[in-house]
Simulated assay, not measured.
Amino acid sequence: MEPLTLRTQGPVHRVHVPGSGEAWMVVGWELARAALTDPRLGNDIRHSASWESDGGHAVGRNMLQSDPPLHTRLRRLVAGHFSAGRIGALGPRVEEIAGELIAVLPREGTVDIVGQYALPLPVTVICELLGVPAEERDGFHAWSNELVMPTSPEAAAAAGAALTACLTELTGRKGTLLGDLAGELDGEELLGMAFLLLVAGHETTVNLISATLHGLLSHPDQFALLRDDPALTESAVEEALRLYSPVHTTAFRFAAEPLELAGVRIAAGDAVLVSLAAASRDPLRFPDPDRFDITRRTTGHLGFGHGLHHCLGAPLARMEASVAVRLLLRHRPALAFATDPAELTWRSSTLLRGLAELPLRVG
């Protein structure tokens, strides 16, 4: 049963997660906000009742799978690189990259806006930020995509091994952000930091850019509003974050002790997922929640999570998506679906959701 359907039957449910087993899922907005700041729910997999057989960390020890004080130390080391000031200074380079990508798009015919624009923009930005050479970027994206949306256990294991080897070599390079962190982190922490920044630094943004464009083209009235007033671009991105939620759920959290959520008893060691997608469509928080409205007041949506693990890269993702949408609509204002939107393929996993491709007519 889908999280949105579950929400009508209560805020907490027992679910089966393919490949991971049983878990509790939180789907209501109010309880989701509370769960995301509940210190009894830890991200460290060692709180899991079966952590020794759960597979451990994805790659290295990272912020997403740690709790304070480790999480606090890891986040503090890189937080300054994603401050509003630093991200603002990146704006001109992001516009330059977007302009270069748009310049090679045809003025007539059909393009896959995911593969030719929404993907290469954030991949280029995060790879430049972290020092990944241009010739290594295609392989890096393929590996990271397999890890966050696995096609099979074997393929995911192979991708993890390849990405680990690539990141290990990358963290040894001096003069890069990751190289500079080498003196502050041990080997597993450095590897985990590289993995999280590189993967989280582009996967969700690809989905956000394409979902925003999909939402606008699916709602001609909203598209017209934005063409008439480009100042609504950031609002359109926020509404896409709320309604289409590129990140479906949080990473697993684990009950460090027995607790209750909305009267439901959670045993120590049980896994808990918070459905950001369902929470951000809760009608008790957002009236008419399934409507795409770029003038909506979206304050409080959970597209980037909440609390200690609120997405560190949120300012970068917002800026990249806003630049991408604004410049594309300025230079290719006659965009339209090149195929029936109902036939588009959405790549989905427990964690992420995004378009595999988005064929658009550009003239």
Rank of each mutant, 00 (worst) to 15 (best):
R14I: 00
R14A: 07
R14V: 01
V15P: 02
V15M: 05
V15F: 02
V15W: 04
H16L: 09
H16R: 12
H16Q: 12
H16M: 05
H16E: 13
H16P: 00
V17N: 03
V17E: 03
V17C: 02
P18W: 04
P18E: 08
P18G: 05
G19Q: 09
G19D: 10
G19P: 07
G19E: 11
G19N: 11
G19Y: 11
S20N: 01
S20G: 00
S20A: 09
S20W: 04
G21I: 03
G21Q: 03
E22Q: 05
E22W: 03
E22K: 01
A23I: 06
A23P: 04
W24I: 00
W24S: 00
W24C: 00
W24Y: 00
W24N: 02
M25R: 04
M25G: 01
M25A: 04
M25F: 00
V26G: 04
V26P: 05
V26E: 07
V27R: 04
V27W: 04
V27S: 05
V27N: 03
V27P: 02
G28A: 15
G28P: 02
W29E: 13
W29V: 10
W29H: 15
E30Q: 14
E30I: 00
E30T: 14
L31S: 10
L31V: 14
A32V: 10
A32W: 05
R33K: 13
R33S: 03
R33A: 05
R33I: 03
R33C: 12
A34T: 13
A35P: 11
A35C: 15
A35L: 09
A35Q: 10
L36V: 03
L36S: 04
T37M: 12
T37H: 11
T37D: 13
T37S: 14
D38Y: 09
P39E: 13
P39V: 07
P39Q: 11
R40S: 11
R40Y: 08
L41C: 04
L41R: 04
L41A: 01
G42M: 11
G42T: 15
N43S: 14
N43D: 01
N43T: 06
N43I: 00
N43A: 06
D44Y: 11
I45Q: 11
I45H: 15
I45V: 15
R46V: 01
R46C: 01
R46A: 05
R46G: 01
H47S: 12
S48L: 07
S48G: 09
A49R: 15
A49M: 07
A49N: 04
S50R: 14
S50C: 07
S50H: 14
W51M: 09
W51F: 12
E52V: 13
E52N: 10
S53N: 08
S53Q: 14
D54Y: 11
D54H: 13
D54P: 07
D54I: 06
G55H: 09
G55N: 08
G55R: 11
G56L: 08
